[in-house]
Design a protein around this nucleic acid. Structure first.
Lengths: 191, 191
DNA sequence: CGGAAGATTGAGCGTAGTCAAACCGAGTGG
DNA sequence: CCACTCGGTTTGACTACGCTCAATCTTCCG
């Protein structure tokens, strides 16, 4: 959809499907910086440097709406409330990233995965899907990259949760069986 | 200056001194989410929820300028360029946080500290101070919290860099002796 | 059917966390 | 002036969590 380094001209609203945003590392590996569902807006981080620092990649068939930024800006000049809306979007992103920083800095592997699953669950629920049973669009390696752990560790954590009866997992299909216990695992380290 | 949970009413421009922003964890520990120098603006992340999610704490004597947000908003209605400026500030913060996420997710202890020191160096330099010799305002524990490692590990990394002749360290006073090598340590994992 | 990509599981290892002791400088009080 | 405390730092020894390497399995697709 857009690539790191590309000149900033558009922001992108996800209409359907799932995206990941990644930063390319010098050695060719990639770091996942976020997952984006329908209704999310991507690309606002490019405003500062005038060029995208991340690359957006669809994880399934997806529809997207590219919004020319200059058009957004001129429209906002007539409708002041739009400015607030854009600012709130960016602010929400800042809060989300604070949460990820907290996760990466202070949680162990299982706490990270539990937090991730509850976050995904909440985002699914708020979009009208089931919050207890859903299909992950991303691979173990992508989850691991996002959560700062290796794919094997992600897999082991899934298995551990299943063994404890907190989840039912079949590859990418997940059912949350004991939300309270998952929440308890996170909350010890949460704000 | 402001506390987590406090109703959002102001953004804060640092005039002089150094601040940390922290999230309080349930168990009483705190997670450092950022350090802020003169010229930085704090508090914009509160826009989304209408309340601050972090607490700002000065690390030395400091002066700050509290800007009522409603006043900023009405002023921006007359001077459209101000909107862009605020948006760019938030965007810059997003980019910075992407960098921290990358650091936390993919670097080891020494790479994290090297990256941190070069970032601080650059921020000092851009403010007209020396970029090779400076005084850290924050403790080892605060650096560790920010970088996702324990204070002992931070201390060991400082000692290792000194042993290798990359730094001269005396408590909080730091002189960068071999910037190139420090940069080489980071860049293997950087974008 | 064969090959590729993703996921799971095991064994061994290494980095950073934990616990503990010692050190240092600043501030306080006898 | 010295003894004392206190917060921050350094260093050592040990431990544990997650990484690495490897084998196996499944699913998907040409």
């Amino acid at each position: 959809m857009y690539h790191a380094g590309e000149k900033f001209g558009f922001v992108y609203a996800v209409r359907s499907g799932t995206f990941k945003t990644v930063m390319m590392l010098k050695d060719g590996r990639e770091q996942v910086t976020g997952f984006h569902f329908a209704g999310d807006v991507m690309g606002l981080d490019a405003l500062a440097q005038g060029a995208h620092g991340t690359t957006a990649v669809p994880l399934e068939d997806a529809e997207i709406c590219a919004i020319p930024y200059h058009q957004l800006a001129s429209l906002a000049a007539q409708h002041p409330s739009l400015h607030g809306a854009v600012a709130r979007l960016m602010s929400r992103e800042l809060v989300r990233e604070h949460g990820v920083m907290l996760l990466l800095a202070s949680m162990n592997a299982e706490e990270r995965l539990a937090t991730f699953l509850l976050t995904v669950s909440e985002r699914m629920r708020s979009r009208g899907y089931s919050g207890t049973e859903f299909h992950l669009r991303m691979s173990r390696a992508e989850i691991g990259s996002y959560l700062g752990m290796k794919l094997e560790t992600v897999s082991r954590a899934f298995s551990a949760f299943q063994r404890q009866g907190l989840l039912e997992v079949d590859k990418k299909h997940v059912r949350i069986a004991d939300r309270d216990e998952l929440a308890r695992i996170c909350e010890s380290r949460m704000q």
